[in-house]
Design a protein around this nucleic acid. Structure first.
Lengths: 143, 143
DNA sequence: ATTAATATTGATAATTATTATCAATATAGC
DNA sequence: GCTATATTGATAATAATTATCAATATTAAT
């Protein structure tokens, strides 16, 4: 059901903006929603290509941006290289612990920190909308 | 004095690694230490170029990386585009409030949040080394 | 169902940022 | 000063993302 809602959000966004719902768009959306966390554009391109040989890289790229615009996806940039996208809808907001050795991501959440962030923003006359907290270090195996 | 210490850190790092101290390296270091916050490579290149016409872009790039390696600089990537560097030495650690409209950075700090982050990491058997907290929203003027 | 208007696609070129290459030069230690 | 080699600077190569544009597909209207 979460997936259907996510799809609805996408469809509404498409409609509102006067855009069109294409086969490619559907295939990319479905593949993204079915994907694991932290997928790259390449990953998604390869996945969609399996059932949709004629798909173009640029199309996947464009639509991933579109999903980000409508709030279904979130861009995360770690280190220097590839941008990854993760699903937002139906997933709680979380922060990341990132192992600098093996590259593992651990998702974490702390309500106290969230609340303190709100306060911190308010104290600076700032209206927060979203945030990103990344803690770099060594995970259990690598420390 | 903070600047001299920063220079010492750089000189020590150079020596330890068996590297050499060149005119260009000195000019770039000085310019960086004298620079404002959140400077881009282009900014620094243009600044150094004024007193050092023959400097190459790649040299500035390389040395900014070197300063990052030895802990004098920190890379910050906001939004999509240019990487910026900020001074670490002699500056307290801080987080950023980033206005999505005008692009303004506000530097903030909260000890409670810092401590909670430590706890959060520990609770996950994670050894934190550094972190990045960015809160996006609208600043006083833009809200 | 046709048609008309136009958004989308896909292949590729262009752009942007960063990194690698390499001959010429400068530096550090002897 | 001499030697070994790190550095520089110009440029090429990579890599990631974005722009271009003719062909095609979708939507809404007829």
């Amino acid at each position: 059901m979460a997936r259907n809602n996510a799809k609805d959000i996408f469809l509404n966004y498409i409609k509102e903006k006067g855009l069109r719902y294409t086969k490619q768009r559907e295939a990319i959306l479905e593949a993204f929603l079915a994907s694991g966390k932290h997928i790259t554009i390449d990953d998604l391109y390869n996945t969609v290509k399996k059932t949709n040989q004629e798909i173009g890289y640029a199309t996947v790229h464009r639509n991933l941006k579109l999903m980000t615009e409508c709030g279904l996806a979130d861009e995360i940039k770690i280190g220097s290289h590839k941008t990854r996208f993760e699903q937002k809808y139906g997933h709680e907001h979380h922060d990341h612990l990132i192992c600098m050795k093996c590259g593992k991501f651990i998702e974490v959440h702390d309500d106290k920190i969230e609340r303190l962030q709100e306060k911190l923003a308010e104290a600076n006359d700032f209206a927060p909308q979203r945030h990103k907290l990344e803690i770099y270090g060594l995970c259990k195996k690598c420390r």
